[in-house]
Design a protein around this nucleic acid. Sequence first.
DNA 1: GAAATTTAGTATCGACCGGTATGGAAAAGA
DNA 2: TCTTTTCCATACCGGTCGATACTAAATTTC
Lengths: 213, 213
Amino acid sequence: MGRQREFDVEQALDAALCVFWRKGYEGTSYTDLTQATGVERPGLYSAFGNKEALFRQALERYYSHYLDYFPTALEQPTSREVVEQIFRGAAELHTRHPDRPGCLGIHGALAGSDDAEPIRQALIDARARGEAMLRDRLERAKEEGDLPDSANSAALAAYVMAVLHGMAVQAKAGCSRDVLEAVVDQALSTWPSNPSGRETQKTGAIKPLPLLY
Amino acid sequence: MGRQREFDVEQALDAALCVFWRKGYEGTSYTDLTQATGVERPGLYSAFGNKEALFRQALERYYSHYLDYFPTALEQPTSREVVEQIFRGAAELHTRHPDRPGCLGIHGALAGSDDAEPIRQALIDARARGEAMLRDRLERAKEEGDLPDSANSAALAAYVMAVLHGMAVQAKAGCSRDVLEAVVDQALSTWPSNPSGRETQKTGAIKPLPLLY
DNA sequence: GAAATTTAGTATCGACCGGTATGGAAAAGA
DNA sequence: TCTTTTCCATACCGGTCGATACTAAATTTC
């Protein structure tokens, strides 16, 4: 009962997400949000709660609608393919939208005033969850013989995340996709190969790449 | 002539630098700055100019007083040592001060309001200068036979910078130095080796590292 | 010692921040 | 049709933002 909403909530959330993506949490004002969404301030509050709640919902949408390639990549048969798909997906996503390059999960709230501490922690936690998923996947690769027993899953996962974060920073600085892909090539060039020697897929991309091209 | 300053300008600049390091450009208010420096607002304005000018001077000091290991590392005899020293120096710096982890050059202004665009660009330019210095050094390494002719100096430099940026993000998220060092180990494991086979230093660290430890 | 100059500190500026009260318009149930 | 409920939009709240007049104190020059 009562009057019905005149704006589409999902559409408004996506518009808000794009602003956060570009300006970060604290850099985004309600003036920005109302302009981007076409919804007046009280409308945003009634639909999403306060700014922090709105950002959290935007972040959730970001993971489900933009970072969806990540869980998909984890299903690849070999750790090499998992990591490569994650890297390639990031290079593509971070340069897909020229108006909002980089990654909301990184520069949504990296440094800022003390007020933004909860959001900063939320982003840290979200990234940590992704790293944990990757670590578990690499651990499984060890059990399957896809990675040598000597491999350190936690360190490898941290390394992959570091490269991803660095790519986000570079994308935000205006780097082209080509440069990001070159970074990926180098990052992948020494991925530990299958110790048992048995190939698990047709491309056989296990052998080390030649030195950058 | 006239009254003399009661505070030490360098000391105040360093205090301001530390606040910017922790909270970023826009996250830092003049209330923060006056508390950290012990200097009232008009004092900061008369000594440094406005907030943007103060940040730029803080950034300059950051490069000369904290990132000084970078130009030093470029003087190492081999590219491998150059890059390793840069990596190790970053891992150390980013965790040296627990109250301000990470790198001012990265999260001083990554995303934010449009007002901060000049500062954002200044940080991008500063990082680009560092990347250019590294690229030139790697180019020299190719001329010296330290790197193979097939090596892509620009791509290698971009890769190194990406790892550095990623380490800064992780340090800001609370990563320990040990984790950063593990990331460095993995990042170094892909470094191209000397094609001519002649060693240029005693350690002979050219051969690829074993898989993570 | 008096004038000139530069500092320090208080108090304040207009603009914008995140967040709301309010009142009228629109749509549902009776 | 009338009541109730919900939404939209203007206008506004106290607080904080970066930036400055202004006054008084301190130091140099004349």
